[in-house]
């Protein structure tokens, strides 16, 4: 299974925008999610939950800890998909 990295970033951007109530245009892969007004740990966990549902992966808390941007999250998802594909 090939993994579409750009597609993952795009989809995560949409999830983040929906969960945090901001526009897709206001986000870039390096946006620090913790800097978005209202982005508390609870909302960020919901982002993680949506990401898990979307790709049917389970992300360990250990992996998510320290993730602060869409690009970071995309990396974690990509790694999880690679594990799944292996």
């Amino acid at each position: 299974m090939s993994i579409d990295a750009d597609g993952i970033v795009r989809q995560i951007t949409e999830i983040v925008a929906a969960e945090l109530g901001v526009t897709v245009d206001s986000l870039v892969p390096d946006t620090d999610l913790r800097g978005i007004e209202g982005a508390d740990s609870v909302r960020l966990l919901r982002v993680v939950a949506k990401v898990e549902q979307t790709w049917d992966v389970e992300l360990e808390d250990d992996e998510v800890f320290g993730v602060s941007s869409i690009a970071d999250l995309a990396k974690v998802v990509t790694a999880a998909l690679q594990v799944q594909a292996a």
Binding site: R34, G35, E37, G38, D40, S41, R43, S68
Partner: peptide, 18 residues
Amino acid sequence: ATGLRTAIGAALGLAEVS
């Protein structure tokens, strides 16, 4: 303003900051 909010959010884990 965004930078200040990010710094507080990251260090304190607090998002309810204006």
